[in-house]
Amino acid sequence: MSSTTRLDNAYDHAEVIPFDDNSKLILFSDCHRGDNSFADDFANNRNIYFHALNHYYREGFHYFELGDGDELWENISFDAIFEAHKNVYQLLRRFHLEKRLYMIWGNHDMVYKDPDYVKKHLSHYFEPIDGSDKALFKGITYHEALRLKHTETGQEIFLTHGHQADWWNYVCWRIGRFLVRVLWKPLQVVGIADPTSPAKNYKELIRIEKRIKRWILRKNLLLTIAGHTHRPRFPEPGEIPFFNDGSCVHPRSITGIEIENGEISLIKWHIDSKPDGTLQIVRVLLEGPEKLVDYINP
Rank of each mutant, 00 (worst) to 15 (best):
N75K: 05
D245H: 00
D41K: 06
L221D: 15
I76H: 12
H108W: 02
R6V: 04
Y112S: 15
F126S: 04
I225Y: 02
E258A: 14
A10H: 08
I17D: 13
I225Q: 05
N169V: 01
V190D: 11
W215Q: 08
Y102S: 08
F158E: 10
A226I: 12
S77N: 09
T4E: 14
A193D: 15
I240C: 13
P235T: 00
I212Y: 03
I257C: 03
V293F: 09
L27A: 00
P275V: 03
S23N: 03
R181F: 12
H96A: 07
H270E: 15
P251T: 05
L136C: 04
S265L: 09
F42K: 01
V180R: 14
K200G: 06
W167H: 15
E204R: 12
L187V: 02
R93L: 07
V284I: 14
L66E: 08
L91F: 05
E98G: 04
E74R: 12
Q90W: 08
V118Y: 10
E127V: 00
D194V: 04
K86I: 07
L136F: 03
R252V: 01
L223Y: 04
H124Q: 10
T4R: 10
G131N: 04
A165L: 06
F242N: 05
H96T: 03
D130S: 13
G106E: 08
I212T: 04
R100H: 02
S23Y: 03
V111G: 12
W173I: 00
A165Q: 05
R147M: 15
H143R: 11
L136K: 00
